[in-house]
Design a protein around this nucleic acid. Structure first.
Lengths: 345, 345
DNA sequence: CTGAAAGCGCTTACAG
DNA sequence: CTGAAAGCGCTTACAG
């Protein structure tokens, strides 16, 4: 910066002004400074600026490890790109596998003086205190572990209803739901329901409204993945095995993640059964569904909008001292692929 | 820091000394300062330290977008964790999809004064100049686009030889290679060969040595993925279609990525063919191979070692002014799963 | 419209 | 062993 100032024959203050409020600098001088910036290739030191203004233009992102579910790769990528579009750089920490405690990630982000922290399925209430103490705003994505904090949510109901409607229109009567057990995921919550409860409730009401079988034995509940071993299709395989062992098995299965659907396909492949011939399968997340054989019909979310909104809320919280926490809800929707067809009659 | 100093009745300089060279502070004082640090929960501001010491403890990582190939999620995760273990925070930029030019990422990393930049399949020779000018060392992973720069490489030959040996032991004679076309990937190189050439050469020599058919028509070459559309199994589907159309099709296929293998399984599934009944399939990367149906035999790399070595080299380059660029090479290896069996006779 | 000066929170060479 | 002082590279309130 000193070089630029010297070259242009002005003070460093004027260089800064050309950078941030050029209209306040007389034209002749401004042009001289701009020429000097060009000539030297000068770009302000982000670290120094961060120290001076106590805005680092960094946001922290704490999100589930993408190796456990590639959906989180898509989400974190979308958030990172939305952040870049607004001039922010993302500092990402993965949560879920490895022994990388969320508390440590929070500490790191505080030390790095990030302007805001975005959590996706990773916020534990006890992590809020240090962030609040450091005056760092928080946005929750698809999670409401804390009241009074911005939250960007996804409503599973539209996608699940579309999935059940798709299956009943094909002629399916016995449709199984494979998903997270609400009892196993007693997540902290502020709205009285967890995601697992919401998805299960959406399934139940869609099945009831659309005339498919309402049979509790068709609700196959468990975990999405085991944290150890990085064998993310294991849970789906185990749950599909339970379905194959049923007295009155379903003809279609709605799984609560694409990873579960992958496990389903593996068990059916090993058992010599075909999809959609013997079973129709629908996934959730629209992550690896298009890579499976056959490509799997799946419920997806509007990722770009979620990411954009998340950033808008974070920026509002950063820049507006009077910002009131908001809650935004997006709809899920169904993408039909080759894993669903009419049942054998 | 001022608070701590006041509370302990010492100067800020002494607080800093307790933090960085405690043995130089008299015991009584040191304990007083440590107590004050405890009491206030003080942690040094990383931004200020970065400005003062011109070491930010950040490393930049520019790597292929994990949505194009999940292997890069595994690799970047491994590097990020290795960095954390050494006290570094990673600033990650994805390369390949979206319009996120590498040059911009490089600029961002320079502005952020990262201590080093790690490239995986993303280094273009023209990006080196600004980094060199900013005195930021570079490590190349699985890529040697530039001479005189640290490089951590993977030798495809051991894994490919193991794959072919596995197939010939099962009785396969006609084995196809599906991979990147060396002509399509005229990557910058310093060692005379590109990765595509190395893999193809490894295939050819393994096939020759192990007595399988050496038939140029069994080399099905193309691209790993299309950058547009985020349909990463598309290329594999197209190449598999070419194999199905052959007069003398192979009985086994070695694909150069798990994404290609996914496309293979999709085409065979749609054609009513079975794996490994009709075709044995081997993938590469050991990324989603364990999620496919059937789980796919795949060639993998020692990720933890690669990540650790990458960081060791980066740190050496950061801390040691006399550091001489090094080249480290790791072996690939085969993980056998359910997609390979004896051919139909 | 412009510059001199202060200060963000640290670290470290220097003097004692 | 310890403190006062300088300085990393910026931004901005203040005075003119």
């Amino acid at each position: 910066m000193g070089d630029v100032a010297r070259l242009a024959g002005v003070s460093p203050a004027t260089v800064a002004r050309v950078l941030y409020e050029p209209e306040k600098v007389a034209l002749a001088r401004r042009q001289k400074v701009q020429a000097a910036i060009e000539a030297t290739g000068y770009r302000p030191n982000v670290v120094a600026r961060g120290l001076r203004t106590s805005r680092t233009w960094k946001i922290g992102l704490i999100i589930v490890d993408g190796r456990l579910n590639p959906y989180f790769v898509n989400l974190s990528q979308a958030i990172r790109l939305a952040a870049m579009a607004e001039g922010y750089t993302a500092l990402t920490f993965q949560y879920g596998s490895a022994n990388e405690p969320v508390a440590d990630a929070v500490q790191q982000l505080i030390l790095n003086r990030v302007d805001a922290v975005i959590f996706s399925y990773a916020l534990r209430p006890e992590d809020i205190a240090p962030l609040t103490a450091a005056n760092i705003p928080v946005v929750q994505v698809e999670q409401e572990a804390i009241a009074g904090t911005d939250a960007v949510m996804c409503d599973p109901a539209p996608g699940i209803r579309a999935a059940i409607a798709h299956l009943t229109a094909l002629g399916h009567q016995r449709i199984a739901f494979m998903g997270g057990d609400p009892a196993a995921y007693a997540r902290p919550r502020v709205h009285g329901t967890t995601m697992e409860e919401e998805r299960l409730a959406a399934f139940r009401s869609a099945v009831r409204d659309l005339g498919a079988d309402s049979d509790p034995s068709l609700e196959v509940l468990g975990r999405y993945f085991t944290l150890s071993g990085l064998d993310p299709s294991k849970e789906g395989r185990a749950m599909m095995q339970r379905i194959l062992d049923m007295d009155q098995p379903p003809t279609a299965i709605l799984a609560s993640s694409d990873m579960l659907a992958a496990g389903i396909l593996q068990v059916l492949n090993a058992a010599g059964k075909s999809v959609p011939g013997d079973f129709s399968v629908i996934g959730y997340d629209d992550s690896i569904s298009s890579l499976l054989a056959p490509p799997v019909t799946s419920i997806g979310r509007p990722l770009q909008q979620i990411a954009k909104t998340t950033l808008d809320l974070a920026i509002a919280a950063i820049t507006d001292a009077d910002h009131r926490p908001m809650r935004r809800v997006f709809d899920t929707s169904l993408t039909v692929r080759a894993s669903t067809a009419a049942p054998k009659s």
